[in-house]
């Protein structure tokens, strides 16, 4: 067997073992608070056929996407500015530390109070929670830009656009990828809190509803459904994109 097959088999066995552990402990406990896997599967099917699951999943996914794009674009710009200009960094570093340490919940609550219980307030609250992380990662990126390549670009009279596209962006790509990775999982967790506190749809709202009904099976069904969506994005979108961007790195003389 090749190394890859061994790894896949190990991973599948490990996941199966976790499922079995869950199945048997649920059987032994025999309590509503821990339903067995097939009960969760049934709850999933019920929600799927009623169309509820897809509706709420899409609502949450839309918020994740909006907050993600907002946080990455604003965070990258600020991060690159702070990384390139020392004075700006000295002025705004304390703001950054402050924002970084305000709990997500406080930002969400204040955002709802100040801007009302609406979609814009929800999405900006999520983005605002993520922006400091993006800023810090991209600031490191901008600081690590290779001055030798900049000089080369200057001597060979690269235009602004050529310089950004062929010299700057490839150097920032690993930092952008790191911010994306940590960003997407953090954002979806915060989106759920936002939905729970002030929205009338989305996975967070549904979890709140089934929490009140003490329906653990449906809560788990929603959780797993969303986790699978995120895994699909990771393996089908993010990882292939990263492989494309770093193919020059894989070989060496």
């Amino acid at each position: 067997m090749s190394e890859v097959t061994v790894r896949v088999v190990t991973m599948l066995t490990s996941m199966l073992a976790l499922g079995l552990l869950w199945h048997f402990s649920a059987g032994a406990l025999n309590d509503r608070s821990l339903p067995p896997p097939y009960a969760v599967w049934q709850a999933f099917l019920v929600e799927w056929h009623s169309g509820e699951l897809v509706f709420h999943l899409l609502a949450t996914l839309g918020r994740v996407a909006a907050a993600f794009i907002l946080a990455m674009s604003i965070g990258s710009c600020i991060g690159m500015l702070l990384g390139s200009y020392k004075t700006l960094n000295t002025i705004f570093d304390s703001w950054l530390v402050l924002l970084l340490n305000i709990p997500a919940l406080v930002i969400i609550v204040l955002s709802y109070i100040w801007f009302g219980l609406n979609e814009a307030a929800a999405i900006s609250a999520v983005a605002l929670n993520k922006i400091p992380n993006v800023v810090i990662t991209m600031r490191e990126g901008a600081r690590s830009v290779d001055s030798e390549l900049n000089e080369m670009a200057k001597v060979y009279r690269f235009g602004r656009w050529k310089r950004i596209r062929h010299v700057l962006i490839p150097q920032l790509q690993p930092f952008f990828a790191a911010a994306t990775r940590s960003g997407i999982s953090l954002i979806w967790k915060i989106v759920l809190v936002v939905e729970l506190l002030g929205r009338s749809n989305g996975v967070g709202f549904q979890i709140q509803l089934y929490f009140q009904l003490f329906d653990v099976a449906t809560i788990l069904a929603y959780t797993f459904a969303f986790v699978f969506v995120m895994l699909a994005i990771e393996y089908l979108v993010l990882q292939p994109m990263e492989r494309m961007a770093t193919r020059w790195r894989t070989t060496s003389a």
């Binding site: 030798e148 390549l149 000089e151 080369m152 001597v155 060979y156 009279r157 690269f158 050529k162 062929h166 010299v167 490839p170 020059w248 790195r249």
Partner: peptide
């Protein structure tokens, strides 16, 4: 036009040899 060969090659690691040469051309 002025061209330079630096002490280190200073090629863009993420572009192929031909792209490296073409990018520097007017």
């Amino acid at each position: 036009r002025v061209a330079t060969v630096f002490q280190e090659p200073r090629l863009l690691p993420w572009r192929s040899v031909e792209e490296n040469v073409r990018l520097a051309m007017p």
